[in-house]
Amino acid sequence: MTTPSLGKDLIGLEGLSADQIRLILDTAEPFKEVSERAIKKVPALRGKTIVNLFFEPSTRTRISFEFAEKRLSADTVNVATSGSSVSKGETLVDTARNLEAMRIDMVVIRHPSSGAAQFLGDRIGSNVINAGDGKHEHPTQGLLDLLTLRDRFGRIEGLKVAICGDVLHSRVARSNIWGLLKLGAEVALCGPATLIPRELAELGVQIIPRIDDAIAWADALNVLRLQLERMQAGFIPSLREYNRVFGVTRERLDRAGKDVVILHPGPMNRGVEIDSDVADGPHSVILPQVTNGVAVRMAVLYLLAGGAPEWQAS
């Protein structure tokens, strides 16, 4: 029995239906098993060429994708460039055309501009997978967060998940919001008002101003990384204040007197948004997130590879 198509590209979770999201999560299960084998390789994508086009530095996501690609027996090439296309000299359009001329099957792109993945996907016939475009979406992160929650709770529907931190600048937050809402979870956003766009309430998410209330409400917290630049840009007065007012600390969790599952997309700023004893504690699923990341990415690559690139004669 074949599966319904995902289309040519994975740009974001906003554009997927609940069924498509569930399909990816279900497909990730057998891929988890592959990663447990001694020979962590299956020939499913043998002969496919995949380019990891990273315009923003990233170690963990790139490595995760690389493992996913290699475990499917694909041939991979990493292209890492820094900065925007303007400083680089070659425009994104030209990069796209060059890739297509080389008959690349799939492109995994991470780029500092929102919309860059769609820009590329609209212009080349290869499958395009968004590994994070500006502040827009990071769909594979959203998917692995969903998978991790599903593993832990057995379901997503009815779960209460609070996304905590700099939602305004977070593509992880946006992907999570879409994925959780579509699968029937209740979503709350918690953080300094300067970093929570109020309009998102129109999508059906709650806004909880104080972290203690968010902890009391939630089954799980997805703690976002706070970047130093936010302080420099004046969104918050200091990292110290952020930790004291919004940090997820052992004391706060103990005071709430309940078990709350802790997720974090990484890399963590220990002592800022999350304390070490929480990150390394018994309710943290941060490491399972990483394991699930490879499986989810394998599932996405496997499913997308089912659609032949447009330049291939059928």
Partner: peptide
């Protein structure tokens, strides 16, 4: 600045 910019991830 509104719901669309919040969804698209644009300032």
């Amino acid at each position: 600045e509104g719901l669309v910019s919040a969804r698209l991830g644009l300032k």
